[in-house]
Design a protein around this nucleic acid. Sequence first.
RNA 1: GGGCACUUAGCUCAGUUGGUUAGAGCGCCUCGUUUACACCGAGGAGGUCGUAGGUUCGAAUCCUACAGUGCCCACCA
Length: 857
Amino acid sequence: MMDKAYNPAQHEDEISGLWEASGFYTPENLPGDRTEPFSIVLPPPNATGTLHLGHAMYVLQDVMIRHARMQGKKTLWLPGTDHAAIATQSKVESMMYAAEGKTRHDVGREELLRRIDAFVEESKSTINNQLRKMGFSLDWTRERFTLDPGLVHAVQTMFIQMANDGLVYRGDRVVNWDPKLHTTVADDEMEYKEEKAPFYYFQYGPFVIGTVRPETKFGDKYVVMHPDDERYAAYRHGDTLEVEWINGPITATIIKDEAVDPAFGSGVMTITPWHTPTDFEIAQRHGLDKEQIIDLDGNLLPVAGEFAGTHIEEARPKIVEKLKAKGLLVKIDEEYLHSIAVSYRGGGKIEPQIMKQWFVAVDKPVVAWKGKTQTLKEVALDVVREGDIQIVPDRFNKTYEHWMENLHDWCISRQLWYGHRIPAWYHSGDAAREKPVVQIDSPGADYTQDEDVLDTWFSSGMWTFSTLGWPQKSKDLNTFHPTDVLETGYDILFFWVARMILMTTYGMGEIPFRKVYLHGLVRDKFGQKMSKSKGNGIDPLEMTAKYGTDAVRMSLVTGTTPGNDVRLYEEKIANFRNFVNKLWNVSRFVVMNEASAGEPSRADRWILSRLHALIRDVDRAYADDQYGQACDRLYGFVWHEFADWYIEMSKLKTVPSIKQREVLGTVLKLLHPVIPFVTEVVAKEAGMVMPHGMLMVDEWPHADESMIDPALDKRFDAIQQIVTDVRNLRREYRIAPGRKLEVLAVDMPEEDTALIAHLARVHFVPEKSYTTAAHLVSGEQKFIIPLDGVIDVEKEKQRLATQMVEVEKHIASIADKLNNEKFMQNARADIVDQTRDLHAQRETELQQLKKSLEALS
RNA sequence: GGGCACUUAGCUCAGUUGGUUAGAGCGCCUCGUUUACACCGAGGAGGUCGUAGGUUCGAAUCCUACAGUGCCCACCA
């Protein structure tokens, strides 16, 4: 027997168990003859602990998968986790440091990796439990991890293939070095912080140069200015001059380059190619020398002379002091505001360095695509521009293109221990490590492997196909690749989505997915971003325990639109808990009532009309990726059409409603992708006939548009309006509930008046009228302008005149029948006035309309 | 500096191709316990749809400008 209120905790585990035991999460086990595949790979959460509410947005994928499964598709939703090299290693390192005061160098590579593995195992199991708890229909038999042997093999294969094609190369480039974490950091793993810092102006020969970082200036022997700068026209490119500098005289060379902004400072600068990307580019353009000034720990090198070995922060004021003593300090601007780059993860100040690193060449034409040999970048742009990949919402197309167009070669080596170790080997005789041998196994005893690991996005870039068996030509790849949708947050469009497109078009020769659906960020009560690193994530389990998984799921789906942020808070979840309970009770009512037989009533035909309109609208919403709208529509139908009217009507014994079960069954199916638990429970309780006894694999309803009857819908709108009006009338004039109220029937079929009579407890007096007396009495009279544009103005006027007479008559008649003092005195005058006003208003409208119609013709 | 989005009820937000009276939930007020549901029902108050122009018979919706908010990208020595 069904309880009065739905208790999620009582059912969810059982239902989960049922689903999993069925094996239907695995496509091969699905019933029926399914040929059309539908696949999604789960964006792998980082194996760094637990999931937060941001991850709960995965629910959209479950909605898509469950929907497709009910449509009879061969559905695969593949789960897995990401080793997230830098995030995981730094998390374990900091836990280790906090607990034992040990660093990775104290325990060594092997022990650290052992600890990380243990931590990751625990994380994975926590994460998987959370995913199960959310009711996600993931195929656990295909679970993957980016460091699984198969995936390691795939990553190595890809690296080697790219190296052979010349797409992966080793070179000296400026990289973002994090002196704290001792690794390079990707461009998009940095963030900029505003900082106020003293800006120093120094005399450099005849010039004045400005800098916030005097400690980098030791080796500056190039002085650069814009070629068109009139002030320095006397100096020619390549001229040399002697200048007095920090540690004595130096020979400076004049360089003219357009990168210099003449309007900034003096329009002259000296450059430090080793530690500034822009300077590096200038140096490359002119073939200038580059010299390292700062070491990897942030200490000054011998070039600094007396300052060698000093940390830069410590050295800076001393250098300024020295320059001042030499009379080279011109002035200091203390209010200078500039932004400094810090590492996303560790928060260390980024120090650009020239280092030997591995790169992916994005501008090298080696990718065979659509019969042409193109660059990685060109292909990645092409697939989006040509619509092979659709980005939802499409405004992100521009963002994507802009980013892709400006992409530089991608640095993929990281000085970490955890991750995919680079399959490159150096001979002991090659001290400079300039001739790496790229292959999986060691070429021999004289070789040592590269110590670095790959950027974690290198392996996650391969996620759609490495998980399906690549480089083997597996059956899964054949069936499920390209995947149908990639659903993820817009915040990792660049990090991940773009890289998947680069890697997959090259590696597979096909797109990774047909559609990218980007959701917004889930923000907390205060609009704060819930992020992996900030640790302000809310535990989804807490909410599911309190309000039920369905309520959490629905509150994440309803009211969300693609690409827009979602704010989630407890009241919202509570509201959907109420909805779930409403559905439960509607079902309870239906189940408790014997199904009646006979001819469908007008109410039956109405609810079926509404139901099929609902299916149509939900289908449209799904097709347009408007999941929020689908939910909204379902919410409204269940509560305000099915429960408030149809069920209420069915309580009147005189209005048989025999479609209760049918409607309920359809509604359960439509709601199942969003709120799978309660719908599954109710379907069982209601004894619905389902394949394998499970709603999960039942058929998605089909919208029969011939069932939709707009005239009937309109009629019922009117009926509902009249009932409401009459109820108001009753209240207004304090007519006792027991007392019958007589109103005029208006061009209305017997069936309708009967319904109104019951719902509003009125007695109808048949009489001809333009509209209903109930409308008139409650002051709700409205004139509808026909939209077909065919209006007989004279006839309409005539009609209005007649109506005025009728109105007077009606009012007299109603008043008599009501026999109510107050009504007699007040209402009568009011209504007559009101009707006159409307009459006048209508006249004006008609004149205007006439004019415009004439103007048109 | 470049780009994108947002601005609708007290709060959080829907409103896709312009079209009857701009919606929902929460909150607030009134009434109500008729056995599906108080995790409820009936009703109500509350909106110059950021501002100013324009297009149109008709604009929250399209166009222009402006203001405020948020985000992304780039970054100057």
